[in-house]
Design a protein around this nucleic acid. Structure first.
Lengths: 168, 168
DNA sequence: TTGGAATGTCAACAAGGCTGACGTATTGTG
DNA sequence: CACAATACGTCAGCCTTGTTGACATTCCAA
């Protein structure tokens, strides 16, 4: 592997030591726990879990999305996704419409009840995010996003960017 | 809460918009998938999963730790942890010693085989982390860590800092 | 010494992943 | 038109990893 020329005689590479990397790994672990804590708590009482939250989030983000699209986004099988969707439909949170152009497809939408739950969940998660962002400041936030994006798989990054392009 | 004086008349608060927060949430989701992908792949063949990885990581980090300590660190019940430990012990990856002062306690250590697996797992995870860090650069990395730390629960932050204080 | 608290083990169950197989519409193609 | 491919749903069965309940052991303090 060819190394890029080092600024300041290489001392700036201290942030790549195993020790620093290990800290980053542990920070991801503990932070992700906090990241999911609030929605988990909200869904606990409703006989639903993280899987339902993810489905709701992406249906909200991409109204009218199809089952296979959602499948790819969540990285789960259709059988697994189907179980979750069946529950959401039974609870009246998600509505299914037969595709207009291709009637094999099923377009997924949140019902008003589903949208209300989505708002409750994302409000909670955004509130924690906002607090963290405010504490860390804009420069830190930019770095946060850069590192996360560099950590994604190719496939995930494409999906992430496709979503990001849509809403902002 | 008292706000620090804003540079540039408050326009810097644009990084706290719902849109920016949502991007951060989605970045966490996709990045965490990448974060766990490599160890998951390695463990796949060995009839083990993410739970085993986490246990191995923290036993490596805190040799001689007890079951209840590990329990608190991982945020799971002792019964859940016990199943994982039983498998690791059966595979000869973890060694259990009865506590010297308190014989109710079990002190956990990695065997040489366990340490070898730990190295394989953490090498893979560190490699991805290193690539991400290198791409993003030291300033971004500092921000990344700041935001993650601010996102943790109180309890998690204490645990994270206790670990960090030990090794670095 | 005895009862409560702490520590850890075993058993059984649930959520939510997975694969495989199959049925049914619907679409597109030779 | 016939037929293959696509999109989706479902059933059955398995695995991992969480949960609670019940219980054994050990320590400590009244």
């Amino acid at each position: 592997m060819a190394e890029a020329p080092l600024p300041q005689g290489g001392s700036s590479l201290l942030f790549l030591t195993d020790e620093q990397l290990r800290k980053g790994i542990e920070a991801m672990f503990f932070a992700y726990r906090g990241f999911t804590a609030d929605p988990d708590r909200i869904l606990e009482g409703r006989e639903m879990g993280r899987a339902h939250h993810r489905a709701i989030h992406f249906i909200h983000r991409s109204p009218g999305t199809t089952v296979s699209n959602l499948m790819a986004l969540l990285g789960v099988t259709k059988q697994s996704l189907n179980r979750v969707l069946r529950a959401l439909i039974a609870e009246g949170l998600v509505e299914v419409r037969v595709g207009r152009r291709d009637r094999r497809e099923r377009n997924l939408h949140l019902t008003p009840e589903g949208a209300a739950l989505e708002r409750e969940l994302s409000d909670a998660q955004r509130e924690r995010m906002r607090a963290a962002y405010r504490t860390a400041g804009p420069v830190a936030v930019a770095g946060f996003r850069q590192v996360l994006e560099a950590m994604m798989d190719e496939e995930s990054r494409r999906q992430y960017e496709a979503l990001a392009g849509r809403g902002g």
